[in-house]
Design a binder for these strands. Structure first.
Length: 301
DNA sequence: AATAGCAACAACCGCCGACCG
DNA sequence: ACGGTCGGCGGTTGTTGCTAT
């Protein structure tokens, strides 16, 4: 009856991922790519649902993820985007390099929502709370979005700092996806988003800076604003026995010390899981992982 | 020191749309 | 045109860690 379950529930493990499982998934995807997620757990030797593997990869294991709390600027951007898009977390996430929809959604629910309420702003409508209540349909972010699309000049609190209405169409037609992968996108995306990200992280604040930030995100849709991407398509196994240069599969970070910090990336293993590997700088990034290969990842985990 | 309550976040679930045969 | 499969999305729940009592 109805839909076929995404996987055979029997014998499928649920709950938090272990370091061992992560290792298997990373190794598998880096060496084989993910032809189809349903097949991944079987081929990778995981007792997990394919969907669960995809989620784990896209939300936590992807090398291009940025971890840690959202900066003020990022948070402001999320608020602004939410005012336009509503709960379209994936669309919002596409505008924040290295952030996932799940992460932003969680941050919204736990931090930003409260912050806005505290400021007397309705997190749904983005209007002052003391305003007369509107009907549910008027609260519909979808409706507000489409109305602003239909009439880019329409004034609403949500649009008060829209940087340039001329970008609305680009914005709406944006198809940039964190998972889109091509070598070209990888590099260009990296350059654009990194400059922006570095700006954000450098603490660029103030209204002018904020508008700069927004402008930066709106312009030049031909250069996807999404996170740096990487090619996880199946690679020929160079040696037939592993040991390929996995680092080559990753975006080319300018600072190689930075390259594998994602492995730390806020994972729950705890620092104790890395006992014996005195390879972290003061900033918590790994420093001895040059030329990381699969054998090395075995050691890491 | 114990524990209850809360906050934060990771993960799951079900639905939907795109795609393909 | 239709049905099946798959990936993606958003909402919700479960778990863990922290803080207050």
């Amino acid at each position: 009856m109805g839909r076929q379950p995404c996987c055979d529930k029997s014998g499928v493990k649920k709950g938090p991922w272990t370091a061992e499982e992560d290792k298997k998934l990373i190794n598998f995807i880096l060496t084989n790519g993910h032809c189809c997620w349903r097949a991944v757990p079987k081929l990778a030797g995981l007792r997990r649902c394919g969907k669960s593997c995809r989620l784990r990869w896209t939300n936590y294991l992807r090398p291009d993820l940025k971890r840690g709390l959202l900066s003020e600027a990022e948070e402001q951007l999320v608020i602004d985007l939410h005012a336009r898009l509503g709960n379209r977390w994936s669309k919002i996430a596409a505008r924040l390099p290295g952030r996932t929809d799940n992460e932003i959604k969680n941050h919204w629910n736990t931090h930003i929502k409260k912050k806005l309420l505290k400021m007397g702003i309705d997190p749904v409508t983005h209007e002052p709370l003391n305003k007369p209540q509107k009907t549910p349909s008027e609260h519909d972010p979808e409706a507000s979005l489409s109305s602003s699309q239909a009439d880019p000049t329409s004034e609403s609190p949500a649009n008060t700092h829209q940087p340039n209405n001329a970008h609305a169409d680009e914005y709406n037609s944006s198809s940039s996806s964190p998972s889109a992968s091509s070598a070209e996108n990888c590099c260009s995306g990296r350059d654009e988003s990194t400059v922006l990200l570095e700006y954000i992280c450098s603490g660029g604040g103030g209204d002018d800076d904020q508008s700069f930030l927004m402008d930066s995100l709106w312009v030049d849709e031909s250069q996807p604003a999404g996170p740096p991407t990487f090619d996880v398509s199946p690679k020929e196994n160079p040696s037939g026995g592993g040991g390929g240069d996995v680092a080559g599969l990753f975006p080319s970070w300018p600072d190689e010390n930075e390259s594998f910090s994602w492995l730390l990336g806020g994972q729950d293993y705890g620092i104790h899981d890395f006992d014996g590997f005195d390879c972290f700088g003061d900033d918590g990034t790994m420093s001895i992982l040059d030329g990381l290969d699969l054998e090395m990842t075995d050691k890491i985990f």
